[in-house]
Amino acid sequence: MIRKRPITLTVNGSTYARDIEPRRLLTDFLREDLGLTGTHVGCEHGVCGACTVLLDGNSARACLCLAVQADGRDVTTVEGMGEIGALSLLQEKFRKHHALQCGFCTPGMLATAHEILNDAAPLTDAEIREALSGNLCRCTGYEHIVRAVSEALSERLGGAATGSAPNAG
């Protein structure tokens, strides 16, 4: 039996203290110990991006992080990004542009897109595609995801939303 280690971390603004095995992945800790099942587990080796969360504000693969490595850190999962009736800017744009179908990739897409918005640099659609390239989606063909992120980014940068369909939303 491996000795458990105490960790204390902030997840979506709440502080949690738990004793966990050092081998526990952050994905399993979030989903099974904290019951936050919005973080999805796809490939478990860093390729698909479904488990992407924000670690101290920067995107990170939760499947490639041991929960003990998140000790003292600030984690944001999709549950901390907005809620029904109070969607985040990105969630609102994903809804408006139909940027999700099955929704499996969406929590990871949102985490990556959060970092894109936080960087606050103007990006072309090609650059947005490149920034999202670590998150796989098998439904949408990406087109609508790029539109959603692009519009959220232009609003964040203070410009008027460009290129949105007049009848959308």
Binding site: T52, R61, T112, E115, A131, N135
Partner: peptide, 9 residues
């Protein structure tokens, strides 16, 4: 090198 989330870590 890989993707944004990988480059962060």
């Amino acid at each position: 090198v890989a993707h944004m989330a990988i480059r962060n870590r």
